[in-house]
Design a protein around this nucleic acid. Sequence first.
DNA 1: CGAGTAAGTGGACACTGTGTCCGCCTAGTA
DNA 2: TACTAGGCGGACACAGTGTCCACTTACTCG
Lengths: 200, 200
Amino acid sequence: MFKIVPMTTAASPPEGRERADAARNRARVLAAAERLFSTADPRTITMDRIAKEAGVGRATLYRRYPDPASIAVALLDEHERLLQGQLLAGAPPLGPGAPPGERLAAFYEAMVELLDRHLPLALGAETGNARMKTGAYGFWRVHVRSLLVAAEVADPDALVDALLAPLAPEVFRYQREERGLSTVEIGAALSRLARRLLGG
Amino acid sequence: MFKIVPMTTAASPPEGRERADAARNRARVLAAAERLFSTADPRTITMDRIAKEAGVGRATLYRRYPDPASIAVALLDEHERLLQGQLLAGAPPLGPGAPPGERLAAFYEAMVELLDRHLPLALGAETGNARMKTGAYGFWRVHVRSLLVAAEVADPDALVDALLAPLAPEVFRYQREERGLSTVEIGAALSRLARRLLGG
DNA sequence: CGAGTAAGTGGACACTGTGTCCGCCTAGTA
DNA sequence: TACTAGGCGGACACAGTGTCCACTTACTCG
């Protein structure tokens, strides 16, 4: 089901054989990062803290990841891969088959649920606003753009980023925490938006 | 025309009389910041650099602004105030009188133009994703929400942040620089979105 | 007009996090 | 068991932060 997705993950060994101690440390680092990101404020998480938590030296971290954000991205990629598979080859309305408006609505709902489950990680991955540079963003972009094309919307290239913007982790956090909105309300509003735009 | 706007600005003296040297330094600081933000990468701008550029000590900066982002916010507020006045009491379609769809479209166009002119400042103000904490964001929010209410859209509270999300400086930057879109294209796409949603 | 004073100023300090370098160690191999 | 390539991590130099306090200066009042 997932072998369609060609994306490589930073959580996997870079090439060839990996020494046993390196593998052990990689696992330790990822586990430590996941733990930290889900408990502490993402902005306070430093390479130093992750290294301490993982029980490895700081240089060991730098060997693979340039900064905390890229570790969060690696972890997030794992979780996003499932949804990517469903979009490409899953059942409608998420997968192919349903009309574009329905598919976009389903995509919104799924993304909101994903954000809800991994918000701290998503916020951590956003440090320095690098969100749009990740492979995942490119994937969502291609997907939504194809829906716009299918719905024969004018100028899909200019619209696609506007439609993805509401899914920025910081926007979701704001709606949840500052505005007191529930996940369902946010998802429902985006669903309606999708259907209104592309036709239900 | 602007006295309707009740917002206070961080660029103005905090209370009562201000000493002449303090005023002089305030002006120097703001001028230096404007200069720096429009030339250098916003992320590299530190309190230290601004102080050096302004020719004042660092503690003088900290007296009024806690970080570079808040200086950018103060500067940006000045520019945004004009648009705020037009929304409240200007001529249609930006000001009152036009149907909601047209007003939202005009708002989008105006905001895109504003972003285009002050992008470096807007990016600088966004550091740490503090954009939504600014008074200006609250203003846009109230405005767009009132348009949604006027158009009798369901659940305006959940939709309003989604409609403001495409105006995030980082999104605009991405569309311009990474996607090669022009300001007109971005504005036009958002206009169409507005009319489709609220009815032209 | 000159002394008093409250506000403003900026150099210095201690601290935190970064990114890199290099000597040590250990897993895998012969 | 000894060799070696690669992994590891402590240490270092550096940059930026936020605060403190002694000095200076603009305004005020006798």
